[in-house]
Structures are given as structure tokens and as C-alpha cells.
Design a protein around this nucleic acid. Structure first.
Lengths: 213, 213
DNA sequence: TTTGCAATACCGACCGGTTGGTATGCCTCA
DNA sequence: TGAGGCATACCAACCGGTCGGTATTGCAAA
């Protein structure tokens, strides 16, 4: 799963603690379902500190999306699949890595940006844009690898950018389906769906690389 | 798009009007973001009528998910793709039909059950279960067609049920990505993603049926 | 080195408005 | 005449946000 705590050092100031709390609580109970008071309690700071650092709850939402984007960006930048020489294998290894991250309760592996954009697309343009940036930046990090694999396998009829977005679409969709379940069925269903994503890319790239799982 | 009004006659009693209002408002501003007062205003009834028909807001959410499930179920049961004799073509025609339904503002084509389950999976088991039933029933309606197509094309390594769920996963994921955009880009992005779903199934079934669009 | 002062970081009581929900009354139709 | 189908008035809890105030820090003049 994508751990709630990545490789960032524990926040010591109120702002950092609030962002940590936001990532955790938004995953569990969404943005609108989390009150400012609850956020402060979780972070161990007071309401005064909250509004000292953020002009509004919406501003915290924007900052949390950016914080999430940076954290996950760094996390995936450090991931082991980058060292694989063959581009097709590298792209499939990315999917395998995402599958390996799925586990535990649903709030442990789902995406903060995907959760937030669904609830704020109609009410907060600022948060919507921050979530768009997060998801599309995440997709963009794979584009070069996908483009290389497409050239290698002579894939036509689509673009690397479109395929990179498809990764995100299936990942987000698998999280939605996971949220319809309870207990271990959440992770099982998400993994099953990412397996189809893997199969699609393997067929596209005409690769016959066995699933390591 | 999946029209807000399907083939149901206009509701005349308060209960029906409230369910219609719920489907419309939940699509636009989610469940938690829609107050009981707003719901009543939209339906043209009073708060007394609301709590006469539903013991709580949560109960309305459950009923709305069931109402949505029945409406969409009837809508897809009447759809033209059922008349296609070849099972592979029939499954691809279903995807083409879903692509054709995408259009207009994002609240016109997104899924009520997918929207609701994301915001209630942690707070309301009853609504979560109703949404699960809606999504999985929708998936189940395709299972027989997919099983037939799999047998025809000798597809192994997965199941018809799993592939049917994948349809829903990609559809839900495409809606999430659509919600990161604004204007016509919402529908464009959703259609692009469903195009990948079509390509996956076409490759699985070794079909070379040109996209009609 | 000490003093003065302003900026920063933080505190928690409080406010107006909104929320889901209730209590009660009226009016129609079997 | 009574029971279902509403309407109106109201409530307590909670919400995001404000405000007056304090503790700590950095820095420059004396």
C-alpha cells in the first residue's frame, strides 16, 4: 500500500502536522466529512494555528493535494522499477509495483487526489485544479517510459499520454470498486482490476512476461 | 449521456419526487453536500413530507441508490446492442453504447452509485451496500454476453465476472478523470478512456471491428 | 551586552449560520 | 371518524471562521 507515512521526516511545525492529518483523514472520511476541529485534534494543534497557516479550509485542501502530489511523486521516483533496462518490462513492473502497494484497509492504499476531486469538482475550482495537477503529474511521470515501449512494440492508434492517463483511470476505478467492499475484499478487488490493466499493456506491447505474483 | 430522466413517468407523489431530486442533486453536488432542505426545495415538497417517507437522510440515500439501479437497469435492458447476434460484437457494441452516452456536463453522464459509495464507504454501511448492489448488478447484466464471447474467442486466464467488473472499474475511473477537467474536456477525457476499454476487449477477443465513431 | 520592539507562531473562547431531525397540527378521503 | 399524507414551527448540535490575546524569536539601537 502507499503508506500514510512515506519517507518524509515527522512534521514538527503546525503546518506540517496539519497536512499529515489532512492526508490521513481525507482518505478515511473525505474532505467535506472532516471538520476543521477534527483536523486540529488529529494534528494536535489548535484552531488558531489552523487559521494562522491557512486562510480557509479550502486553502488547506489545495495545500494537501500539493503535499500529496509531492510525497507520492518522490515515493515513485525512488521505486525500484526504474532500474529495469527494457522499457516494456519497466512499464509492466510499474503496474506490478502498484499491485504490490494494494493491501490492508481501503484507506491505506487509495488516492487522496482522486477522493478529493470527486467531492469538490462542483464546489471548489482551486481544489479541483490541484487534484488534476496531482493525477496528471503522476501520469506524466510514466509517459516517457510508455513512449519508449510503444516505439519498441510498434504500437499505433493511441498516444503515450493517453495510455498514461489510462493507468490512472484504471487505478482510480479500482479504488471505487474497492470501496464497495468490506474487509480484505477491498484489496482483493482492486488487485484483480489492476491485473486487467497489466494484461492490456502486456497485449499492447506483445509481451509475454509472466505475472510475478 | 445517461439522461436524468429515463423512461420513467414523472413522479406525482412526494416520495417519487424526492428520489428524482436526489438522483439529480447527488450527481451535481454529492450526497453529503446536498442538504435535506435543498432536496425538499428541488422536489417541491416540505421537510415534513421528507421525514414522513424516509426515517432519515441515510434511508433516502439507500432508496436513491436502489432507484438509480432500477432505472439504469431498465435503460440498459432496452438498449439496442442486445439484438446483435455475434457475442463479441455485442460486447463491443455495449462499450460503444456507453461511449455514445458520454456527453454534456459531467453531472449528466456520471454514476450516482459510484459517486455515493466513495463518500459513504466509511460512514454508512447501508448506503455502501446499496451502491455495491447497483454497480455489481449492472456488471452482472453483461456477464452472460462476456462468457459467450470468451468461449468464442478461447479467452483464458480470467473470468467473465472479473471482466464484467473491469467494465465498471474503467467506467468509474473515466468519470473520476473527467471530474478533474472542466467544460467539454470532461466528456472528451471520459470517451478517450472508454476507448482503451474497447481496445482491451477487442484484443482479448481477437476482434478487428472498427470503432464506429 | 543589554534593551526595545516588531514579526511570527500559536491559543481557545466565541459567533452566526446551517444541519439533520422532531413535535404538532391540518386537511383530505375512505 | 380516523388514518394516511402532508405542512409549519422549532430545536440542539455542529460547522467554518473570527478575534483578542500570549509566548517566542530575531535583530538592531543604545
Amino acid at each position: 500500500m502507499i503508506p500514510n507515512r512515506l519517507f518524509r521526516q515527522p512534521a514538527e511545525n503546525a503546518r506540517g502536522k496539519l497536512l499529515e492529518a489532512a492526508v490521513k483523514l481525507v482518505r478515511m472520511q473525505r474532505f467535506a466529512g472532516t471538520s476543521v476541529d477534527h483536523l486540529c485534534r488529529q494534528a494536535g494543534v489548535t484552531k488558531g494555528a489552523f487559521f494562522h497557516h491557512f486562510p480557509s479550509k479550502e486553502a488547506l485542501g489545495v495545500a494537501a493535494a500539493q503535499y500529496w502530489s509531492e510525497s507520492t511523486g518522490a515515493f515513485f521516483a525512488d521505486a525500484p522499477y526504474h532500474h529495469i533496462a527494457d522499457s516494456v518490462e519497466r512499464v509492466l513492473a510499474y503496474i506490478d509495483f502498484r499491485i504490490a502497494l494494494v493491501g490492508g484497509p481501503v484507506e491505506a492504499f487509495t488516492c487522496v487526489a482522486g477522493t478529493m476531486v470527486q467531492e469538490t469538482f462542483g464546489t471548489s475550482d482551486a481544489i479541483r485544479r490541484a487534484c488534476e495537477t496531482s493525477i496528471m503529474t503522476n501520469a506524466g511521470a510514466l509517459e516517457a517510459d510508455i513512449a519508449e515501449a510503444m516505439a519498441q512494440a510498434n504500437v499505433t492508434g493511441t498516444t503515450a499520454a493517453s495510455l498514461a492517463r489510462h493507468m490512472q483511470a484504471v487505478i482510480q476505478g479500482s479504488f471505487i470498486l474497492a470501496k464497495t467492499q468490506e474487509g480484505h475484499a477491498c484489496a482483493d478487488l482492486a488487485r484483480e482490476q489492476l491485473g486487467h490493466l497489466r494484461r492490456y499493456f502486456a497485449m499492447l506491447f506483445k509481451a509475454d512476461i509472466p505475472d510475478p505474483l
